[in-house]
Write a protein that binds this DNA or RNA. Structure first.
Lengths: 225, 225
DNA sequence: CGGACAATTGATTATGCTCAATACTGGTGG
DNA sequence: CCACCAGTATTGAGCATAATCAATTGTCCG
């Protein structure tokens, strides 16, 4: 990829959402909002699909655990190029900040619930485990971004999504093609073509754009080795 | 990049270095090898250039802090493609493992000294800080691998190296072109051509292959935004 | 000095991007 | 209920970037 002459879509303005996030943090404290012994602040917050949880550049506050739905973590360059760092599913933790500033956006890509923790109130061991999970997934994604071709990236992605939805017949994607592309370091066109090819080869079946049946998981596994 | 028909060089055999690492761990315990209060085991270990510290697939033991020299962390695919995850310089910590198994190789790319810590003996807060540093650098590298073109990747790399050697006139590279290529998700040829172009444009000056003077840091900064 | 490895340079190719047009989908209002 | 619209996805054609293949030069050690 070369630096684009024109912005993707009309590149989102990087704006602080400090007020927004502060509002959200106090809003809709759930059933478990009362404090329980030495546990973290179980402030359950609900975000509608598309809602911004925090912005790149915001002063960091809480860390969050997803309890339902899905969250997209993405970093935006000045010219509009975007890298999706991770999709966070239930059980996953996000919001670790560098020097007190969030270095990426966190947005709800489905209606979702998260639990906000004050980092100080979480046991250090829990924080460490969460940070290590993020680290390992970042490291394996570096492999995908650095050394796999488009077809292999899609195979990795589909297997990863399938693993997180074990039990379902079909993989339900909560993200758009643009999100997938920005996660895999590709363009929407390449993602679309790649999925089309996998379907033509009988490896997957697209019930709809967001619902994919994996018919030959072993073929995907062979692609990523 | 597409899956290579032939291995890079003659792809390194993935072999367990359990015996080797065990040996190394007990060898050459340095001056600070005695235990000091509640501190970690300050077992200082020296590795010669090229030495293997641990292998991908090894049962995990200690975590390590680099005190001198440089360490390359790399992940190898079955067909020989390699992704360098990080170059660890003095002060940096490596060796966090997933499910008790190291998921990458750690090798000395210069003569170097590391301090081996038993993870249990390190304060959780220190582990967390080390893990978060690795996470943040992995995240920013995902941006490089996913969304920057070859010239931008080189600019990012040179600026990063320069930052770690603040004070020097020239950036001294401890790694080969192949290492740089595998770190940046490029080929050696592209790295070489890219550096050549930067030199032709007067942005850098190659005193030797491993010694680069940055004449126009601002140009590099503008490239990465 | 010679040999092995590392780095550079050149020519060609292919993968994935860009630009462009078309099809599909879900939600809204007549 | 259906037409419409906007956003999303797919498909097509041509091109550019970086990979591949190949040859040469440079450098470090013994």
């Amino acid at each position: 990829m070369s630096p684009p002459v024109l912005d993707r879509e009309t590149a989102m303005t990087i704006q602080s959402s400090r007020e927004f996030a502060a509002l959200a943090r106090t809003a809709k404290v759930g059933n478990d909002g009362h404090r329980v012994g030495p546990s973290p602040v179980n402030a359950v917050i609900h975000y509608d699909i598309g809602a911004l949880i925090f912005s790149q550049g915001d002063r960091a506050g809480n860390i969050f655990t997803v309890t339902s739905g899905a969250v997209r973590l993405s970093h935006l360059l000045a010219d509009g190029r975007r890298q999706v760092l991770a999709f966070c599913m239930p059980g996953e933790v996000f919001g670790f900040a560098q020097d007190g500033i969030y270095s990426f956006f966190a947005e709800a890509i489905e209606d979702c619930s998260v639990v906000a923790h004050s980092p100080q109130e979480v046991r250090a061991a829990d924080n460490l485990n969460a940070a290590l999970s993020s680290l390992f997934s970042a490291q394996s994604h570096m492999l995908v971004l650095g050394r796999q071709c488009a077809a292999e990236r899609l195979a990795s992605f589909l297997l990863d999504m399938a693993k997180r939805q074990r039990g379902r017949r079909c993989v339900e994607l909560s993200m758009s093609r643009a999100d997938i592309a920005d996660y895999l370091g590709l363009t929407v066109e390449t993602v679309s073509r790649g999925l089309g090819k996998l379907q033509k080869d009988g490896v997957i079946l697209l019930h709809s754009a967001r619902c994919i049946e994996i018919r030959e998981p072993q073929v995907l596994r062979d692609m990523v080795e």
